[in-house]
Computed example of a mutant assay.
Amino acid sequence: MDVDLFVEKHRDEWDRLRVLTRRSGRLSGAEADELITLYQRAATHLSIVRSAAPDPVLVDRLTMLVSQARAATTGTSAPGWRDAGMFFAQRFPAAVYRARHWWVPTAALFLLVSGVIAAWVANSPAVQSAIATPDSIAELTRPGGDFETYYSSEPAASFAAQVWTNNAYIAAASLVVGLLILPVVFILFVNAMNVGVAAGLMADAGRLDVFFGLITPHGLLELTAVFVAAGAGMRLGWTLIDPGPRPRARALAEEGRTVAGMALGLAVVLLISGVIEAFVTPSGMSTAARVGIGVAAELVFLVYVFVYGRRAALAGETGDIDARSAGDVAPVAA
């Protein structure tokens, strides 16, 4: 094949393709069709050159042109920072909002069970004696005792990392085993029992104010994240039982991807909670200031979910990845 003659014959097409590629965002319908046609021809030309006359300069030139034309015709992936911004601005809050019918009742039931256990422990010496010895309870509840010093037992940065890892593990476990539902109920009950026992012992010692002063700053946001994880996990499990109008495999795939995304978002929420627990809870600030920070953090999260998340959900956001990344699915009857 005569390379010079080949180039001379097709140069105008390549130049036109280059022009259309540069203007890809401002093309008319006819120009868009022309762009696709010239792109397909250029790809064929590249194949011919590679097989019949592999001239390095011409191959490189056509490879670059075809790559640019392909990007112009198929589009390019959004930058990573844009995907991250979309996730935290719309997908994550929408996913949490859509799961509210699961995690809000979960939160209410958890608090009810914790309150019942706390009242039972506080008013039953027999239960207290079954929990621990009088000396151990006194050591836990006294001023400067184990309950208070726990939050300052390690350097703040190290403590924050430890707390975050533990809470993230609990949230992830709730999301993952939610498919089975009952293990999540067990995890929640164990945590409700721990909170209730501690509250009951501190109440019996007349130090319930100290209990809430220490647990509220970080506990509001921390427990909310756990409730969301548990609720979303159980919602995923219920999808296996009742997928609705969608095929079961498709429903599980869509909800499973949403849950995986929620795990990432909740990890960030728990990181914030861990920082508060390590740096605010044991600090020398007044109780009102510490509790105020915890309440403010909780209110910000709730506004984030019930304002921004609701708005995104009403606009059609589900928390799943975009349709192009998820792939095509077969239509189903309504």
Rank of each mutant, 00 (worst) to 15 (best):
P105T: 04
T74E: 08
A71L: 14
V116M: 08
L111N: 01
Y97E: 00
L58M: 14
R91H: 15
A107C: 05
F110N: 03
A71Y: 08
L58P: 06
R82C: 03
V57K: 07
A78R: 03
M86L: 06
A107D: 04
P79A: 10
A69I: 00
V59L: 15
D60H: 09
R82I: 05
P79M: 07
A78I: 01
Q90W: 05
S77D: 08
Y97F: 00
G75T: 09
Q90M: 04
H101L: 12
W120R: 03
F110M: 09
A108D: 01
L111W: 03
V104A: 11
R70N: 03
A84I: 06
D60R: 14
T63S: 15
V59I: 13
T63K: 15
M86N: 03
V127Q: 02
P125S: 12
T106F: 12
G115H: 00
R98I: 05
W102I: 00
T63H: 10
L65D: 02
V116R: 04
A107K: 03
L109V: 15
T74K: 04
V113N: 01
D83F: 07
I117P: 10
T76M: 15
A99C: 10
T76V: 15
A84C: 03
L65F: 00
V66S: 12
M86V: 03
M64L: 13
W81D: 11
A118R: 14
G80Q: 13
P105C: 05
M86Q: 07
I117Y: 10
A94H: 02
R100D: 02
S124K: 09
A126P: 02
H101C: 06
A126T: 11
L62H: 02
A69F: 02
R82H: 06
G85W: 07
R100M: 07
R82Q: 09
Q68G: 06
R91K: 14
A95Q: 13
I117K: 11
A89L: 13
S124M: 11
S77E: 13
A99D: 15
R82K: 10
R70E: 11
V113L: 07
A99V: 11
P56I: 03
A118M: 12
M86F: 06
Q68V: 01
Y97V: 01
V59P: 15
W120K: 05
T63V: 05
T73L: 09
A108V: 08
V57F: 01
A122M: 00
R91Y: 10
S67V: 05
R91E: 14
M86E: 08
W103A: 11
A99S: 15
A71W: 09
A72D: 12
M64G: 12
T74V: 06
Y97A: 00
W103G: 06
Y97I: 00
Y97P: 01
